[in-house]
Simulated scan of single mutants.
Amino acid sequence: MPAVKVSLAAVAALFAATATSCGLGGGPEPVEIVGPAPTAPPFSASPKALPRAYDPKANAASQITEALARAKADGRPVMLDFGARWCAECATLQHIFRLQDVRPSLDRYHRVTIDVGRIDRHLGLARKYGLDLKRTGIPALVVLSPQGDVRTAGNEELYPAAGNDELLPETVTAFLRRWQ
């Protein structure tokens, strides 16, 4: 059991050192985090599994084109989710997306996850949709209308207005409901 306590303490220190969004400020060298954030409470995923987020081999441009075609057919907006597997805040966001209370709002979007590497991949694609990832950090979301118009871009709305640097399910749900 002591090994678990040390491991959780190391993860807690990593989260404490992470800025409001990954990729900003100094801090420790990022590590890849796979799966839900270890400090988050257990969750219940809906039956439809989410694809693995931030696949570095995925063709983001073609996935966006396909999502926009589906959006034009059914009228649902498209969400572009820019992030990376090493980013603790991105892992937390993926965990929140799987929560039973959040999932119905997320399911109202066509979602495309875009791996940005060490914030050195897909920067032109991010700029095309109004993001400067070197300024905002990750995770960063863009919501497109079914016609492809940018409705919102960034990550400011994901964090509570009280200045808390923590992603919360209720704030993420409010964001999803606002832009659906």
Rank of each mutant, 00 (worst) to 15 (best):
A40Q: 07
P77R: 11
A53I: 06
A71G: 00
L93A: 08
L125F: 04
R70P: 02
A88E: 11
G137S: 07
P30H: 12
P56M: 15
D74E: 03
D115Q: 14
G27T: 09
L8T: 04
A37P: 01
D165L: 14
A88M: 13
K48Q: 13
L8N: 10
A10E: 15
V78S: 03
M79N: 01
L80R: 12
I138E: 00
V31N: 10
A17R: 15
L68V: 01
Y109W: 00
T92Q: 15
D107C: 05
R121C: 05
P28L: 13
I138M: 02
Q100K: 15
Q63D: 10
E29Q: 14
C22E: 08
P2I: 03
P42E: 14
L176H: 15
G35V: 06
L99Y: 07
A174P: 00
W179Y: 14
L106V: 02
A67E: 06
S105K: 05
A88V: 15
T136H: 08
F82Y: 07
L133M: 04
D165T: 09
R85E: 05
P47D: 13
A3V: 12
T171S: 09
P38A: 13
G154F: 04
V143W: 03
A13C: 08
T171R: 09
V78P: 00
E32I: 14
I138H: 06
V116C: 10
D101P: 10
L50K: 07
P160K: 10
E157M: 14
A45T: 07
Q100H: 13
K128I: 01
W179T: 02
